[in-house]
């Protein structure tokens, strides 16, 4: 039993809404997981009693016997209920089990992601124009004050960005805004809004990138 290196069979995390997430280690033998949970129950002093728990299998293959075993153990001995089962990364094992249940092979057909291609605008966006792109948006020209560009992911402006740009509009915090010069009255990435500092007279030599760092929008000049 080698827990000293920080490898825990079950990671327990508390969420803001009061629920707990139990994340199972993918490589750990199942008996170790059960033993770890048993030990945890004894040391936790009924801390988890009547809590709601999300069981996250991570990249561990789905096995019905494992899931039911944990479910029964948590219900009987801990007095807690699993409210959600997360199948993170390997759905194959789940489909394998499901196809055995119905005795018909299941083939998963990925839904074609619609218009993953970027929207390309080949002129300057003047005041009053509003451009919405489901994924990336490339503008070959300036974005003037009064114009709005909204994209699901990144915004790339081959010109000066002076209007409003909202990257990652659906909540993607990884989204970035690229422009030869970023001098807008406002930029937004995901749920964050930023305004440039007053009297900001910078002149980028090549380009600028706006991105989220530490819950803040930062503009880096290159």
């Amino acid at each position: 039993m080698d827990n000293s290196k920080g490898v825990v069979p079950v990671q327990i995390r508390a969420q803001r809404d009061g629920q707990f997430i139990f994340i199972l280690d993918p490589s750990m033998p199942f008996q170790m997981i059960l033993r770890y949970l048993e030990k945890k129950r004894k040391t936790s002093n009924n801390f988890f009693k009547s809590a709601k728990i999300i069981l996250d299998l991570g990249s561990r293959p789905f096995r019905i016997d494992e899931v039911t075993a944990i479910r029964d153990m948590l219900r009987r001995q801990w007095g807690v209920k699993i409210v959600e089962l997360r199948l993170g990364h390997s759905l194959d094992s789940f489909f394998e089990w499901a196809s055995k249940q119905i005795d018909i092979p299941i083939k998963q057909i990925p839904v074609a992601e619609f218009s993953m291609e970027p929207v390309v605008i080949r002129h300057t966006c003047r005041s009053g124009t509003r451009i919405e792109a489901p994924v990336d948006c490339i503008i070959l020209g300036d974005v003037n004050p009064g114009a709005e560009v909204i994209a699901g992911r990144d915004i790339i402006v081959f010109g000066v960005l002076r209007g409003i740009a909202h990257a990652g509009a659906m909540g993607n915090r990884e989204a970035k805004i690229w422009a030869l010069s970023i001098e807008p009255n406002q930029i937004r990435i995901a749920d964050l809004v930023a305004m440039p500092p007053q009297d900001d007279k910078h002149q980028p030599k090549r380009y600028e990138v706006a991105q989220i760092r530490d819950d803040q929008i930062q503009v880096l000049t290159f």
Binding site: R126, S127, P145, G146
Partner: peptide, 16 residues
């Protein structure tokens, strides 16, 4: 003036 230029920009967009 910024306001006049903003409106001019909008009008140019409409004309284009």
């Amino acid at each position: 003036e910024v306001s006049a230029i903003r409106d001019a920009d909008r009008v140019i967009g409409l004309l284009e």
